[in-house]
C-alpha cells in the first residue's frame, strides 16, 4: 500500500442552497478517517474569493434551478468553470456539471461531457435507497440514497462510468471530478469521499 505524504487539503463546499452542512460533515469525517492533519480544512464557498486556495470543491444536492440561478447571482459561474481543483458533485451538483441537460432554465457549467436527465426516476414517492456496485470501490456495495435523482443518459469518451442502473448512469469520473446521482454525504460511508481525495493527492 502506498503511503501518502500529508498535504494541506482545502475543501470548499458550495453553500448557496441545499444540504451543505451534511457535505461539510462528511468531508471532515473522511479526512479524519484518512488520518489527515489539522491543517486541512473544510469550509463554505459563497463568493469567488472563497475559492482561492481550495484544492477541492463540493457541489451539494438541492434544487438545480435555484443553485444555478444563485451561481450566476453570486458571480461564481466563471470562477467555478476555471477552478483548477477537483469537483465532487452530487444530485443537483451532477446536473450542474453536465454539458447538456433536459431543462433550459438550468445554466450548466459544462465541465463534464455528459447529457443529464433531471428527476429521471420520478417524484419524491419514487425516491429510493439501494445497494450499488461501484467500479473500483473496495469494501462491497455502496448504500446509495436517491432523492428525486438525475441520471446521465450519455457520456463522452473522456468520462469513466462508475455505476449504472436501468435508467442511466448514476456515478461517473472525469479527470479530477466525480459526480453522483445519489447522496454519499447522507449515509455515513465516506469511501467515495476518500477515493476522491486520494485521487486529488496523487495528482498534486
Amino acid at each position: 500500500m502506498r503511503c501518502y505524504r500529508p498535504v494541506d487539503v482545502k475543501v470548499g463546499v458550495l453553500a448557496l442552497q441545499g444540504n451543505v452542512s451534511e457535505h461539510i460533515d462528511a468531508f471532515r469525517l473522511a479526512l479524519s478517517r484518512m488520518g489527515e492533519d489539522a491543517s486541512s480544512k473544510v469550509f463554505e464557498v459563497r463568493h469567488p474569493a472563497d475559492l482561492v486556495g481550495c484544492n477541492a470543491l463540493a457541489i451539494p444536492g438541492g434544487e438545480s434551478t435555484t443553485i444555478s440561478r444563485l451561481i450566476e447571482k453570486n458571480h461564481l459561474y466563471e470562477p467555478i468553470r476555471i477552478f483548477s481543483g477537483g469537483i465532487f458533485a452530487t444530485c443537483a451538483g451532477m446536473v450542474l456539471m453536465a454539458t447538456h441537460v433536459d431543462d433550459t432554465r438550468v445554466h450548466t457549467l459544462g465541465l463534464i461531457d455528459m447529457t443529464v436527465d433531471r428527476n429521471a426516476f420520478g417524484r419524491q414517492r419514487e425516491s429510493f435507497e439501494a445497494d450499488l456496485l461501484i467500479k473500483g470501490l473496495d469494501g462491497g456495495p455502496f448504500h446509495a440514497i436517491f432523492i428525486r435523482a438525475p441520471v446521465a443518459t450519455s457520456v463522452g469518451a473522456s468520462v469513466k462510468v462508475l455505476s449504472q442502473m436501468n435508467q442511466g448512469i448514476v456515478a461517473a469520473e472525469s479527470g479530477k471530478h466525480m459526480v453522483f446521482s445519489f447522496h454519499p454525504e447522507l449515509c455515513g460511508d465516506t469511501r467515495l469521499h476518500e477515493r476522491f481525495l486520494k485521487t486529488l493527492r496523487s495528482r498534486q
Binding site: 451543505v20 438541492g62 419524491q124
Partner: peptide, 16 residues
C-alpha cells in the same frame, strides 16, 4: 419511503 429518504428530501430544501 424510508425515514432517511424523507429527511433527506427535507434537507435538500435548506437555504431555500
Amino acid at each position: 419511503g424510508t425515514e432517511l429518504l424523507k429527511r433527506g428530501f427535507a434537507s435538500m430544501q435548506k437555504g431555500g
